[in-house]
Amino acid sequence: MAAVKYIPREKLPEWLKALAAQSRVLVPVEEGGSVVFRQYDPARAPVFGSDATAPPKGAVFPACQELFSYAYGKEGEDNAPTLKLDPKTEAQPTVVFGSKPCGARGFLIFDRVYMGKKFPDPYYIAAREATVFVTMACATVENTCFCHWVGSGPADAAGSDVLLTPVEGGYTVEAVSEKGAKFLDNPALTDGAAKAAEAEAVKKASRDALGEAPDIASSPAALLSLFDDMEFWRDQSDKCVSCGACTYLCPTCYCFSITDEGTGTAGRRMRSWDACMHFQFTLEASGHNPRPTKAHRLKNRVGHKFSYYPTLHDGLIACCGCGRCVKSCPVSVDIREIVQNAVAKAKG
């Protein structure tokens, strides 16, 4: 891999402007007290210090995406009915700049679902391939961070294309992927060999700040063994209000719904985020709902991430440990606590 480079903090806009000349650049900015990813605007200073309120999930997997538009019509003298379909698979070249590494790592969980051999998703693949992640290693960690529980860490570059690490006066810059290496060709970036040791120290310090992770290796079996223990799930979900904040803000939650939104004879087929915490998620046309209570639904969310997905995907936990579900929950439901309770309960 290429040598470590360095960019002083004041040179960042120069680099960002150069990137923005070639592609859509999304950076975290403050909006009304929250931090969200928006198109880079030199007049708005990006916020790199704390993790964004919403992850950059929408850069590749938008909250709502048009799959195609349709229009019924008539043609010819005999008024033969016609149907015009106009699919929209093209994706815009995009650089997501300044996400925490966990925000990019979330897509590794998506990839196994949408880039698999059986059901490749052309919309996702196009957007994924057009997107580059320039992430920033964490200099500090928060109370809600638990990336080390799920086999990751505050400087885990898996899923990133370029990794920045904050050091005195600026950032070290490392290319992680070949895709990312092409983005380092900018005069604002200089040789960073002298800063490499400092960067390593920053990475180690934030990893150390997280402390020891508890052993949750038995979570897939533990959660499965508790599948029918509805009293356990009632206790875990008592305070849940069944909103979708945890799923919509999760960098790894990939479920969607498809609806046709149209009027008259024309409209659009939309794919939008769905949340397993909502009653409608599993509501069947007959009116039957296999997950009628919030206890059933929370069981699914935790089970999917820490049991069903890892069982299907070589033990990979479908969680990047960013902690948004804990931090943004209106009633502070803590997924870490639920997983630990399940592991402890299964042990007996």
Binding site: E31, G32, S34, V36, A54, A63, V241, S242, C243, G244, A245, T247, Y248, L249, W273, A275, H278, F279, Q280, P330, V331
Partner: peptide, 29 residues
């Protein structure tokens, strides 16, 4: 326009509201 743009439609506002008693049968969905 400025504020609603970042709404993620999670319905936490609704579900945390003690007077939103329609719960799973809200007209929004």
């Amino acid at each position: 326009r400025y504020h609603m743009d970042r709404c993620i439609r999670c319905y936490a506002c609704r579900n945390a509201c003690p007077m939103c008693v329609c719960r799973d049968h809200c007209i929004a969905q």
